[in-house]
């Protein structure tokens, strides 16, 4: 099975431009980037993919052991970079992917030359001296919500949709199918996202790093953005005039221009 097919890799944009890899977070798939992709594609070569288990990836390649830790997602990122033989790419990771990106960058430094962390949080659970914003019970509540909402996913339709990535119209028979995910897979991704502690990994980041946060983000509050900023030496923190946890959807222009400006600076 090719990584191309497995991770539903899509490459667009200016082929002569610097390569930007857009890594989606928990909850959806590469569709999350649909509003920023056109702006970035003007100047850069844009690589989109779905983690195994998400979107139109090959779900049969999903293994619980692998995707129960952030390393599994980081390996997906590295394998996508290897598949395309990328050098010195900019990895833009949203939410949990910002942390997977840190691990991927450490594993393949020659391939990932800089990081953009969109609304990152290295740890979600409150502890003495650290405020992640949530308690373990809150995460259990989220898992309950996942159980109650099989958004766009149905056991009978899923094989049809997943087995026909080139026929997206099949998915449109279901509403909310953009982020259709097998609930079992979503549960594992949720646990990995919200229970992993990546704080110690931040200090190891040596590449140019941009942190994008929103003014109001219920998932990654400003304290967390400040924490990441101070933990990564030399990082740049930009606070977008946006609300929510997905500025690439709520403020796509501002998000795209912040990324573009950062990448343009790299070549200066």
């Amino acid at each position: 099975m090719s990584i191309h097919r497995r991770n539903n890799i899509r490459v667009t944009g200016r082929s002569s431009g610097r390569t930007i890899v857009l890594a989606h977070g928990f909850g959806c798939d590469q569709n999350m980037w649909r509003l920023v992709e056109p702006a970035l594609a003007k100047d850069f070569r844009v690589v989109l993919f779905d983690y195994v288990g998400a979107g139109r990836s090959d779900v049969s390649a999903w293994r619980e052991e692998r995707y129960s830790s952030l390393d599994g997602y980081a390996r997906d990122v590295v394998e996508v970079c290897e598949e395309l033989d990328l050098r010195d790419a900019v990895l833009v990771g949203h939410s949990v992917s910002a942390m997977a990106g840190v691990l991927a960058g450490a594993a393949a430094p020659e391939r990932i030359g800089s990081l953009v962390m969109v609304c990152p949080s290295p740890y979600y659970i409150d502890e003495d001296g650290y405020r992640g914003g949530f308690s373990a019970e809150d995460i259990d509540e989220l898992l309950e919500s996942l159980e109650s909402n099989y958004l766009g996913w149905s056991a009978t339709m899923a094989p049809v949709i997943m087995g026909n990535p080139d026929r997206p119209e099949l998915g449109e028979e279901l509403t909310n199918s953009f982020c259709a995910t097998d609930p079992d897979i979503a549960r594992v991704f949720a646990r990995t996202t919200f229970l992993s502690d990546s704080r110690k990994d931040l200090a190891g980041v040596t590449v140019p790093t941009l942190i994008l946060e929103c003014e109001q983000d219920a998932i990654a509050p400003p304290e967390v953005g400040a924490y990441v900023h101070s933990a990564i030496p030399g990082s740049e923190l930009v606070t977008l005039a946006a609300t929510g946890h997905c500025p690439q959807l709520s403020a796509p222009e501002a998000t795209a221009s912040a990324i573009s400006a950062f990448v343009a600076d790299l070549d200066r």
Binding site: D138, E141, L142, C179, D217, I219
Partner: peptide, 22 residues
């Protein structure tokens, strides 16, 4: 709080993309 997490990771993005969510 759990519902808020779900709202931010699923509900809000989908609503932005689809314009409707039921």
């Amino acid at each position: 709080v759990g519902g808020r997490l779900y709202h931010e990771t699923h509900f809000a993005p989908l609503l932005r993309m689809q314009g409707h969510l039921g």
